[in-house]
C-alpha cells in the first residue's frame, strides 16, 4: 500500500454506484497510476482490492460510497461535486462549468476562477437522466452500451420520447419497437431526452463559456454532440472523463496535506 519510492504519492478513490475508480498522483499532480473495477455487490471488498494494487501514501475518498470507505479505512472524504470540479478544472483551468453524468446521478457545477465551487444542481433521487437510464434503454433496444452512442448518432432523426422516468420510458420504447420504429431513431430520441434534462441543469448554474463534460457518459459520442448542439457551447472532454472524480480527490488529498504542513 505504501509507495517504496521517495516521492510522496496521493490517491483518490471514487466509489460510484457502477464503477470504482482509483487515481494516484505525485506531489506535482501528475498521474502515476489508474485503476478501475466494477463496483459489484460488495463495494468495500472491491475497493480494498484496488488499494492493494496501488502504491500511495495518502488517500481521499469520494462518490456515493465515500462514507462507507471512511468508516472502513479511516480516510478523509470529499463530495463528488468538489472532486469532479477539481479534476475538471485542473485539466481545463479556464473552464467555469462542469457537467458530470455518472451511473447513478448527474450534476452541473459552476466554478469560480480559482476552481472552487460556486453553485451546483443535482438530479432528483431517481435514475432519470443518468448512466443507468442509458444502460437500461440500451438493453431494451438490444444495443451494446459501448456502441449505443454511435448507433444513435447514425440515426437520421429523433423519435420523441416523452417520459424521463426509467420505468415509463422503457414501456414507451417497447411500444415503439412493437410499432416497427427504427431502433437507432429511438436510441437517438432517448439520448436527446437525457440531454434536455442535462441542459436544463446547466442553464440553472451558468449561461456561457465552455463546458467540461465528465463521468462515464461523457464517453458517449452522441451525448457530446447533442449537448454541444443544444447549448451552442464548446464541450471539452477530459482525457479520461470517468476518472475526473478520482483524479480530483487525489489532488485534494495532496492539497490537504500541503495545508496541514503549512498550518501546523
Amino acid at each position: 500500500m505504501t509507495s517504496d519510492t521517495t516521492v510522496v504519492r496521493y490517491a483518490g478513490i471514487d466509489i460510484g454506484s457502477r464503477t470504482i475508480k482509483l487515481v494516484v498522483v505525485d506531489g506535482t499532480g501528475a498521474i502515476r497510476e489508474t485503476f478501475r473495477s466494477d463496483t459489484g455487490f460488495d463495494p468495500m471488498a472491491t475497493a480494498s482490492e484496488l488499494i492493494e494494487k496501488a502504491a500511495f501514501d495518502r488517500i481521499m475518498a469520494t462518490g456515493y460510497g465515500r462514507n462507507l470507505f471512511e468508516l472502513s479505512f479511516d480516510a478523509p472524504t470529499v463530495t463528488e461535486i468538489k472532486a469532479h470540479a477539481r479534476g475538471a478544472w485542473t485539466e481545463f483551468p479556464d473552464a467555469r462549468t462542469v457537467l458530470d453524468i455518472g451511473g447513478q446521478d448527474s450534476k452541473a457545477i459552476a466554478l469560480f476562477e480559482n476552481g472552487r465551487v460556486k453553485k451546483f444542481e443535482m438530479n432528483d433521487r431517481c435514475a432519470a437522466g443518468t448512466g443507468k437510464f442509458l444502460e437500461i434503454m440500451a438493453a431494451t433496444l438490444g444495443f451494446d452500451l459501448e456502441n449505443f452512442g454511435a448507433q444513435a448518432l447514425a440515426a437520421e432523426k429523433d423519435l420523441l420520447i416523452s417520459s424521463m422516468c426509467t420505468v415509463f420510458a422503457e414501456s414507451e420504447v417497447t411500444s415503439l419497437i412493437a410499432k416497427g420504429e427504427d431502433r437507432k431513431e429511438i436510441a437517438r430520441g432517448l439520448h436527446t431526452s437525457v440531454i434536455r434534462r442535462a441542459a436544463g441543469m446547466i442553464n440553472r448554474v451558468s449561461s456561457d463559456g465552455p463546458i467540461v463534460f465528465t463521468g462515464g457518459v461523457a464517453k458517449n459520442p452522441c451525448m457530446v454532440q447533442l449537448l454541444a448542439g443544444r447549448l451552442d457551447r464548446e464541450i471539452r472532454i477530459p482525457s479520461d472523463p470517468q476518472l475526473a472524480g478520482a483524479y480530483g480527490a487525489a489532488l485534494l488529498a495532496a492539497e490537504q496535506e500541503k495545508n496541514a504542513t503549512l498550518y501546523h
Binding site: T79, I81, R116, M122, R125
Partner: peptide
Amino acid sequence: MEDAGQLKTRVEAFIEQ
C-alpha cells in the same frame, strides 16, 4: 428518508463551498 443519502451529499457539497 429515501433521499437522505442524496440530500447529505448536496448539503456536504454546500458546506465545502
